[in-house]
Design a binder for these strands. Structure first.
Lengths: 333, 333
DNA sequence: TACCGTTGCCGGAACGTTCCGGCAAGGTAT
DNA sequence: ATACCTTGCCGGAACGTTCCGGCAACGGTA
């Protein structure tokens, strides 16, 4: 390991080592100018020998490209598994493209009104009311959103899933399994996902001619709040024969309450969740849920952003991510 | 919004606006040189008027300070709630100190053998075998680890929790509640946390004179693997009267199996987890668990790193994060 | 021979910031 | 009066990179 003094080698060191000029060294490394094959190899060898790595700051100053994207995810009290997987999907895909990922916490923005100095942004489940989201949308930077943005301004790229279809399938599945009076515990956020679920549920009830039974609960609601909601609904409408929960983890939280009400989940009462997670898989009985494939979602967002940044995909591209329903014992009467 | 052409204002623009030199503008903004009060105010006003924000790349090139820290968390179980909270703890605290956080995914490092260009690193639950961890430890950058590092090289700072004491308290609690034959489902990772739990369990059994019943399971084991382990243990040693699970979420996954074995959790069999999570709170019955306070852990790591970077805290500082046990119905016979 | 296009390489300016050293103006002690 | 310090400001170099434009050498064509 031929480490010099203690300051990392610069391109000037590489150039000297290879007995060429800075320009030629740079051209050889970037593959940019006209460099003969032997010279190119000599430069590469010199760089390897010295352990040269380009200084990102200098390069970024010169090219005004930061090789960094920022990731914003909504901050709820509950730490939802969905977002975790999403973050890692983004991180992995970005690393594959040689990009850094920096996290934007909703709470603190370094300087009020200052936009982060990055090449692009990924917004997960953008809530139109969030002032930071709005600011980022108007930053002029390329923005890819996971799920559609309900504001006026359109993002540079979108990956979304067809929750309308999957919610309909879920309700149909319950209906086919004999549940003709399902209750829906909606999520109170104003994300596109949340409102789509509510709209779809309402229309499905109308189409099927069944009563529309729903109740909103804030996304990160505590278990006992959710249980209270369910208790009240069951007390008010005893003929409820299925419960669908929107929020991540809510179905599992509600399970004991159903049991306490004397119902047997999977038999005289079906239970399903709009978000799959370990909690759904490990519940007793395991709970039918829609797998939103968060890791794939994150990866696709990062991929699209990379493609837009490199110009190989036009701005305004919209793609969909297929999602599946995992049918489990909680809806098999 | 007095936006110029379309390129953001530089410090030269601010200087011109305030009718001073670049040097004076810089000094006034940084509070560094000797600047009279009226001049200082004029520069600040000019900067405000133009919406000036310093170019991070230029600044970083000049000062060789990136204002960025990197965060590495083990790849194997990225969906664990613990890590999610940890990440947000770091992000929030770093934002408070004006630092960016970039994620390091274990899978891909931009260039093999290249160290990220950041000011410092936070490693969560460092596993000595992970080659990336080893490389980061030897990068020469300040490193703060969450939990101790079991390799030879010592991190620049450490935040750790006293799992020995809390595990002992947990086992004592079970013992006092009548469970004299507890089984321990250990986690198979080589992190300090994991080995401490196993060591403590072994010693506790010796001290108490109870049989040492344990079995390792990989950290991210699937629910049915865990259930299989428990089934076998119960079949082999029917007098087991308590089960303690190390891995995040494992206790909830195992619950149905205990029920299937004809045991009543909280009565003739106690159940506890070494990691608290929503799954523990929402389980039926709710499961006693050690709250590792991951968000606080993340925040403390970031805080310590900031302090070390700013020089206000010496290298080699080691701090502990207190953790509590949450006693729930699963251990109240 | 004269002309021209191509190839391979290089000098040096520029990106935006920080900060060293210098300088003039004014004050104070000798 | 000289000597000296302090205050307030500034010129300009440096950080490491990219890339524009230029130049010499060479081979091919007329």
């Amino acid at each position: 390991m031929p480490t010099g003094p203690d300051t990392p080698p610069t391109i000037a060191d590489v150039a000297r080592e290879a007995a060429v000029s800075k320009t030629t060294a740079s051209d050889a490394l970037r593959g940019h100018g006209r460099v003969s094959e032997p010279t190119r190899r000599a430069v590469l060898a010199a760089a390897e020998r010295l352990g040269y790595a380009p200084n990102r700051s200098a390069r970024s100053l010169r090219t005004s490209v930061t090789e960094t994207i920022a990731l914003h995810i909504p901050e709820f009290l509950t730490s939802a598994e969905y977002y975790m997987s999403f973050v890692f999907g983004v991180a992995e895909q970005a690393a594959r493209a040689g990009l850094n990922v920096t996290l934007l916490s909703s709470g603190h923005l370094p300087h009020r009104g200052t936009v982060p100095q990055v090449d692009g942004l990924v917004l997960c489940d953008p809530v139109a009311e969030d002032p930071l989201v709005e600011q980022l949308m108007n930053s002029g930077l390329p923005v890819v959103t996971a799920e559609r943005y309900v504001g006026d301004k359109q993002p540079t790229g979108v990956i979304w899933s067809d929750h309308e279809t999957s919610m309909t399938e879920l309700l149909d599945h319950l209906y086919d399994s004999g549940a003709h009076c399902p209750a829906f515990i909606a999520s109170d956020t104003t994300s596109d996902w949340s409102t789509t679920l509510q709209r779809t549920h309402a229309r499905w009830c109308r189409d099927r001619g069944v009563p529309k039974l729903d109740h909103g609960a804030p996304f990160g609601s505590a278990p006992d709040v959710l249980r209270g909601v369910v208790r009240d609904m069951l007390a008010e409408t005893p003929r409820i024969d299925a419960v669908v929960c929107a929020a991540d983890g809510a179905a599992a939280a509600v399970l004991p309450e159903l049991r306490a009400a004397g119902r047997t989940v999977g038999h005289d009462l079906l239970l399903a969740s709009c978000v799959d997670s370990t909690a759904m898989r490990t519940a007793e009985p395991p709970i039918t849920a829609v797998d939103l494939r968060p890791r794939a979602m994150g990866a696709e967002c990062a991929r699209l952003l990379c493609e837009i940044l490199s110009g190989e995909t036009p701005r305004g591209t919209v793609r969909t991510l297929p999602i599946d329903m995992n049918i489990r014992a909680s809806t098999r009467p």
